[in-house]
């Protein structure tokens, strides 16, 4: 065990990169969609209820967090599509490292998410958004966002392994949207009814968004939220990472 874990994981990551090269359209759509959402909220729908300061400066960190959370759908879809085909049987009958299939998936998804963040930040800049923070704080904010994405990734893998079929992804998609919007990504909790505001504050996504606002020095940032933005994703990982790995290793029980 272990000797081939790295090379096998790299082989599986390369497989995902080869999929991008084969179907660049898919990758591009995945990257453009959050930009579309950002523009929609910046110019069409967004009012920034309860936000003190320019809405754009509140919205962009929120959109970054929202994009990380919505990444769950892409992960789920990719995993269920793999399960649906016989190729997973071949992987499992090879003398390869057990977790390499999942590591390849997560490496590719993290790469895509990092790319997505860079694009959103770039678009934010063209909209006039400015970061008022040190390079260290900026990198810290990006790190928190990717940590949230990493937690969502393993939730996605676990849900995909439980659901098993691409059709069931739609059911999860229907749930992801309200959960995503039930956060402070787009509007301040102060503008909401008390009970809703409380629920929104507890959403892990809200914690990350608030921490990012704090680190980047925009409206909606409150001091002391960084630790919550670290702990929440770690807690989710502590639950879903072992669940997903166990589920994958025991797939033969199905």
């Amino acid at each position: 065990m272990g000797t081939y874990a790295l090379t096998d994981s790299w082989t599986m990551t390369r497989r995902e990169l080869a999929h991008w090269a084969r179907q660049p359209g898919r990758l591009v759509v995945g990257l453009v969609f959050p930009v579309m959402l950002l523009l929609m909220f910046a110019y069409l729908i967004g009012g920034g209820r309860g936000v003190s300061g320019p809405y754009r400066d509140y919205l962009i960190p929120g959109m970054l967090a929202l994009t990380m959370a919505f990444g769950l759908e892409g992960t789920m879809l990719a995993v269920t599509q793999d399960l649906d085909k016989g190729v997973i049987d071949r992987f499992r009958s090879l003398p390869m490292a057990n977790g390499a299939v999942l590591v390849g998936r997560s490496a590719a998804d993290m790469l895509q998410s990092a790319l997505g963040l860079a694009i959103l930040v770039g678009v934010g800049y063209t909209l006039g958004w400015r970061v008022h923070a040190s390079p260290g704080a900026f990198l810290g904010a990006m790190g928190l966002l990717l940590l949230l994405r990493f937690a969502m990734l393993w939730i996605g893998i676990h849900l995909a392994l439980v659901a098993g079929r691409p059709e069931l992804v739609q059911a999860v998609q229907i749930l992801v949207w309200p959960v995503g919007f039930l956060s402070n990504a787009l509007a301040a909790p102060a503008s909401m009814p008390d009970w809703l505001g409380t629920a929104v504050e507890w959403n892990p996504m809200s914690r990350t968004a608030t921490a990012v606002r704090e680190l980047l020095g925009g409206p909606g940032g409150e001091p002391g939220h960084v630790w919550a933005a670290v702990l929440w994703p770690l807690a989710l990982l502590a639950v879903f990472f072992p669940l997903a790995v166990r589920r994958f290793a025991r797939m033969d029980r199905q």
């Binding site: 082989t11 085909k85 016989g86 190729v87 009958s93």
Partner: peptide, 28 residues
């Protein structure tokens, strides 16, 4: 062992050579 299951155990998005090279690497 080698296994030929009832459903093609191949990566449908990749080409034939890409598939065989990938599986070859996974056989180390």
């Amino acid at each position: 062992i080698g296994l030929l299951g009832q459903h093609a155990a191949l990566d449908e998005q990749l080409g034939g050579r890409q598939n065989l090279e990938m599986f070859g690497r996974l056989y180390h």
